[in-house]
Design a protein around this nucleic acid. Structure first.
Ligand SMILES: [Mn+2]
Ligand SMILES: [Mn+2]
Length: 287
DNA sequence: GTCGGGC
DNA sequence: GCCCGACAACGCGGA
DNA sequence: TCCGCG
């Protein structure tokens, strides 16, 4: 892949260049395929580096190659959004050369846009607290285990963790969203001093927001292995539950990730969510 | 990063 | 040919 | 309708 302005410093604090960013994405592209290929993308771009203002981009630029699919979605109030959809993983590096730092992805593919193949619980901590968000993650795992649902945490590269659950059985967003809200509610009920479903930051009062709202049609999550626009060039890295206690949310960076890419945790097998059981359990508990 | 207009 | 400015999201829900 | 939020 030819890189334009390869020596441009994208992460000034650690001196990471655009050439290094594109090279990283070339190495990670195969691993990202499951989370990127076939899914409408929202690109978070920083063409002049993360010290300058970046922007979110949903609409595909006209000059992007034909190998990047166009996917039209009607907007709420007229008009359409035309998303880029990658089919060939080599196009991930192309988009990195366009200044993309973070790839935000749908939890469904264009083949079945209303049927997510992942559920993600997004744990958003207040400023600072690494220990609290770990405790919430572990409780989330315990709750999922109690329903026989296997999950894997992702250190987001930013402040929190994501908990990913691969889904079988093609449930629709309506069901998955209900289940995710119920799961988040159960977690918050079990550890009310640490976790909350409060959307407004000022109502969270030092607690972790168990963000279940990612599980909606058209909502996005930072894809595993995506870089984040953070000073140390940290990235979203799947980890084992055993690693959670010793892994900071931004532990993995473009500078220390190389060996990790060939020594990754096992990804869980998709499970059929026991949606009714989860929802009824939550109701009985008073969520 | 790319494009298009002005000089 | 060079330089510069414009442009690059959107949905949801609660106040 | 505006605002907070991701
Ligand atoms: Mn988050
Ligand atoms: Mn969130």
């Amino acid at each position: 892949m030819k890189v334009s302005n390869a020596d441009r410093v994208m992460f000034p604090e650690v001196g990471v260049t655009k050439g290094q960013v594109v090279s990283y994405y070339e190495n990670a592209a195969g691993l990202m395929a499951d989370f990127v290929v076939g899914r409408p993308l929202t690109l978070q771009r920083f063409p002049k580096g993360i010290a300058e203002k970046g922007f979110m981009q949903k609409n595909v630029a006209e000059h992007y190659p034909a190998s990047i699919e166009r996917y039209e979605v009607p907007k709420n109030e007229g008009g359409t959004t035309t998303y880029p959809v990658v089919r060939d993983v080599n196009d991930i590096a192309y988009l990195a050369n366009q200044g993309t730092i973070t790839f935000h992805v749908w939890l469904s593919t264009v083949e079945q846009p209303l049927k997510p193949d992942y559920l993600v619980l997004d744990l958003d901590p207040p400023e600072g607290s690494a220990e609290i968000v770990r405790a919430v993650a572990l409780e989330t795992r315990t709750v999922l285990d109690s329903f026989g649902v296997e999950s894997i945490p992702v250190a987001t590269g930013s402040k929190g963790f994501h908990v990913w659950i691969p889904l079988a059985g093609k449930p629709d967003f309506e069901q998955v969203s209900k289940a995710s809200q119920a799961l988040a509610g159960i977690v918050a009920l079990k550890i009310p001093d640490l976790a909350t479903l409060e959307f407004l930051k000022k109502e969270r009062k030092g607690r972790v927001f168990v963000d279940w709202l990612r599980n909606h049609p058209g909502s996005t999550v930072a894809a595993p292995f995506s870089l984040r626009p953070r000073p140390r060039a940290s990235l979203a890295m799947p980890i084992t539950w055993d690693e959670l206690g010793s892994t900071a949310p931004d532990a993995w960076t473009i500078g220390n990730v190389e060996d990790r890419l060939s020594d990754l945790p096992r990804w869980p097998k998709p499970v059929v969510l026991p949606i009714d059981h989860i929802v009824k359990t939550a109701e009985a508990a008073g969520v």
